[in-house]
Design a binder for these strands. Structure first.
Lengths: 176, 176
DNA sequence: TAGGCTGAGTTTAGGCCTAAACTCAGAGAG
DNA sequence: CTCTCTGAGTTTAGGCCTAAACTCAGCCTA
């Protein structure tokens, strides 16, 4: 009686592995592969939108993280690496690119080699003001086909999933 | 009465944007950011596991896609690009690397420039036999903290989300 | 049958990432 | 006071990707 949900590509992949490698547990595909596809879809959309607006995803992630930290919009490379969930080396490179574009500045906010910090410039803040609202509006539209209740359910289950993984949701501060 | 779910990083990001840019719609973050984090977590885990097993994610994706297509385990570059959801150029490079490692071969399966095809070699099939089961077992463990009912709900909601996006779930054949 | 179109595949330039080696200031032991 | 250790940050080598330019066989037209 219950309406069968229409089968999709993930179901087909499960079937294919059952056929090719009988006995392997394929249940995780229903969750992990679909999450992977959704993330790729949202990532591609974001990359294209931001390219039109003249930024790249990595730079916007850096600037957004600084902005969300609140005044004085200043963080150390180590804090940025943790919040952005990339290596310290990646942060060095992101900061280098953003600094060359005038969006952040390295403020040796203490004395000497340690106690370095990265701070948003006025240009960086202006870029965020110009871009983030557009981005969030566009992404709101992308998930708009789900009813608010469905979105709520999905967000809740994902929160549970992440809590159980013990990874990103605990310390990460990345996002938009 | 209802137990409040513990707040996580995505909730904090929503709050931060409400504070920094009042008026922007932040609801999508609850879904999109959490999906992004989960995908990053699973991707990082997969990369590390496969590195230990001596493969990289992109090569395994290529080989898996060929394997799942069934005998004779042969596809054109264009079909592979669509199934793997990467550009044709990326497929050219993946095939080049895999061919150099002896895992696939280019069988000019027709006449001339067109009608090219890529086929799994015995070594490629052997590598899949050796690696895929381990991978699926490991990933099954990663989502094991969710009860089967929860996993089912999550998979169903993700299927709905993807169907509404009109993207990956319709044509993609990527996966493990 | 010459000219041009089309679409599949390849090449190239450039971006961003990770992992591992490297650098350097400050802290602690002797 | 000097040596070593430690940990934050940077640099380098290498991997994978996209976007756009390029190549080329087959086909269609005149």
């Amino acid at each position: 009686m219950a309406a069968e949900p229409p089968r999709d590509g993930a179901d087909a992949i499960q079937d294919a592995w059952r056929r090719e490698l009988p006995g392997v547990p394929v249940e995780s595909i229903g969750v992990i592969t679909r999450i992977w596809w959704a993330a790729k879809f949202f990532g591609d959309e974001r990359r294209r939108l931001l390219a039109d607006l003249g930024v790249d995803v990595a730079t916007l992630d850096l600037l957004s993280t600084l902005r969300r930290s609140g005044p004085p919009y200043r963080m150390s490379p180590g804090e940025l690496a943790e919040a952005c969930m990339v290596t310290r080396g990646a942060i060095t490179q992101r900061v280098e690119r953003a600094a060359r574009a005038g969006l952040v500045e390295r403020t040796t906010a203490g004395s000497g080699y340690h106690a370095r910090a990265v701070a948003l410039t006025d240009a960086g803040n202006a870029l965020l003001d110009r871009v983030v609202a557009d981005l969030l509006v566009a992404e709101d539209r992308l998930v708009g086909h789900l009813s608010p209740e469905r979105r709520e359910q999905l967000a809740g289950l994902l929160r549970e999933l992440l809590a159980g993984l013990g990874g990103p949701s605990l310390t990460g501060q990345v996002g938009d």
